[in-house]
Nucleic acid binder design. Structure first.
Lengths: 339, 339
DNA sequence: TTGAAAGCGTTACCAA
DNA sequence: TTGGTAACGCTTTCAA
């Protein structure tokens, strides 16, 4: 760890290379008009001095930070990780860098994070879901940069949207269970109101049952979102003791579905012979578990890719002209051994 | 999306509040000497204008960006996610923000990322592992900021270290299998040389066998790191067909262990009656699967917390005085139903 | 506790 | 293709 009081600047490089600082600046940009020979001299001088471009200064000067601020509910979730991966890959060529933060499924924390990010002057902001604090909406609105809401279809979007209806996704599962002739259906999710997408799935589940004239009282909440495998297992215990004749259960995620399934197996309840189980999210575990788990693929990575494309389009558009884009993703049911 | 050509500045707020820009600056800092009354007036004026502090400018001026650059191998890995969580939580109070990137277990990509991050002038850099390209080491060395290597104990550290010996962790598992009287042991991991921590575990496994006079030829590689559940299952197939009398198998991670286990179950092989299985990383799945999986807990979140503390200590120390700190984590064996 | 002046390292803009 | 000059919005430093 070399403690150098002051890193070299463009002026230092300019002196070393015998050119003006402005020419050094050009040597470090892709588009600039500069002779290949001059550039080579400059890059060599820079390397010799250990010079690294200071984007802190260049961003300040050009009012372009190259940041895209992204908030996700949890950093430890394969679905959101896939979305971030899609975003990152698709943005790679464009000089844009992701500033990533997680909210713990908490809108207050989201507000804190968004404000912190806005101070960095990102060129665009990507948030998860359509539920935010009033102040958070105001901040985003006033930021004057493109905003994309993902993983949902908000009624009153802030700006752009790349998402799907979580309620409709739940209906896919209900319809599937119905086609298999099941009538006593249950839902396992987390308690409280923090995970709005999880709640939307529950709501969609209930509505789908009601519109089919089925009883919709079998709802079990266990643990605060995101609900874990262990909480899925606990919920399954509750479910089986309260409504032992349940024929099929949809879980808010594949992780809880896996927990519920192992709980059944531990208690000698056969899946799907005695009970069908479905999850959500197309996690690896749903495919690799034994038996494998019926699920819904929301195409998390695609959401990221399409979000990146939305950002790029919005950034390219002349300042006023950008009308909000909405990209709808169509989740897909994947039927497996459990259902 | 309000398109405002220019966001308000401190001068705008100062005019609105009837004070000097300098006083506005003080109102936005925690330590500054300013009367509570003045501050209140200013904050109100700022809110009215929709002013948000521009850290792009303040960082430039003060030469403090408030960034800690962090690179992890994969964004979709519960272990590294836990480390990031520990880091983030522990850093929350300190005005430091994490700049997170992932390398895909690739040192070339790591070099690219580190260079990109260094341009942002982070106040510290955290990397995973002790293996880097030559140029990456040079860049980090020249950056003049504290560097922390994690999840490993490098022979020739760049600066600070918070980690453990992956080889020794593997030996824990071998010793456990030995105490259960198993002699025909196998290892399942990924191929090639990208995941150096995985390789270290394999090396530790082999050395532990040899030092106990056991045969160490049962090594199966499947897929490029990080090896998935599916690849773990494929490796188990190979293993069982090539060495059907294997008594116990250690997998490079819990995910591959889970895949290997389900593959056994699918084929009617009882775990642990016919074969014992152990993983690594103390993932949720190892606890919740049925049967549950023997594993090694490397205390991923602790690694993050201790790393944050190392960063804070190094940042507090006067420029020259900081000698490298090494924090050793002691991984712990967790014996479960499979082993 | 408050204010004024002088940068911080880069890029935009215009001129050569 | 190159160079000079004037910002960019804030903090540091010193003075009141």
């Amino acid at each position: 760890m070399n403690k150098r009081p002051k890193p070299p600047t463009m002026s230092d490089v300019a002196r070393q290379a015998g050119v003006s600082p402005m020419t050094v600046s050009r040597a470090f940009r892709h588009d600039a008009s500069i002779s290949e020979k001059t550039r080579k001299t400059i890059i060599e001088a820079a390397d010799a001095l250990g010079y690294v471009l200071d984007t802190t200064a260049s961003g300040f000067s050009s009012r372009k930070t190259g940041f895209v601020a992204v908030t996700i509910p949890s950093i430890n979730n394969a679905n959101f990780a896939d979305t971030v991966r899609g975003l990152t890959e698709r943005l790679r060529e464009s000089e844009l860098q992701i500033l990533l933060g997680y909210t713990d499924y908490n809108v207050e924390e989201e507000e804190r994070l968004v404000e912190q990010f806005l101070r960095r002057r990102p060129e665009a902001v990507v948030v998860t879901g359509g539920t935010h604090t009033e102040r958070c909406r105001r901040l985003l609105d006033a930021a004057g940069v493109p905003v994309v809401e993902t993983w949902d279809l908000p009624n009153n979007p802030i700006g752009h949207v790349v998402g799907f209806s979580n309620a409709a996704a739940a209906e896919l599962v209900v319809e599937h269970f119905r086609q298999e002739g099941k009538t006593r259906l249950a839902f396992i999710g987390g308690d409280t109101s923090r995970d709005t997408r999880g709640l939307d799935r529950c709501r969609g589940f209930v509505e789908a049952l009601e519109s089919r004239g089925l009883d919709s009282c079998r709802l079990v909440a266990s643990g605060s979102p995101p609900i874990t495998m262990r909480e899925g297992a606990a919920a399954a215990r509750t479910l089986l003791s309260r409504w032992p004749d349940t024929e099929a259960v949809m879980c808010v995620s594949d992780l809880s579905a896996f927990g519920a399934m192992t709980e059944c197996l531990r208690n000698g309840i056969r899946v799907p012979d005695n009970i069908s189980i479905a999850g959500f999210g197309a996690y690896d575990i749903a495919e690799q578990s034994f038996p494998s788990i019926t699920t819904v693929d929301a195409f998390a990575e695609d959401i990221g890719i399409r979000t990146a494309e939305t950002v790029l389009t919005a950034l390219k558009a002349p300042a006023g002209s950008s009308e909000p884009l909405t990209t709808k993703i169509a989740p897909k049911l994947i039927v497996r051994e459990t259902g």
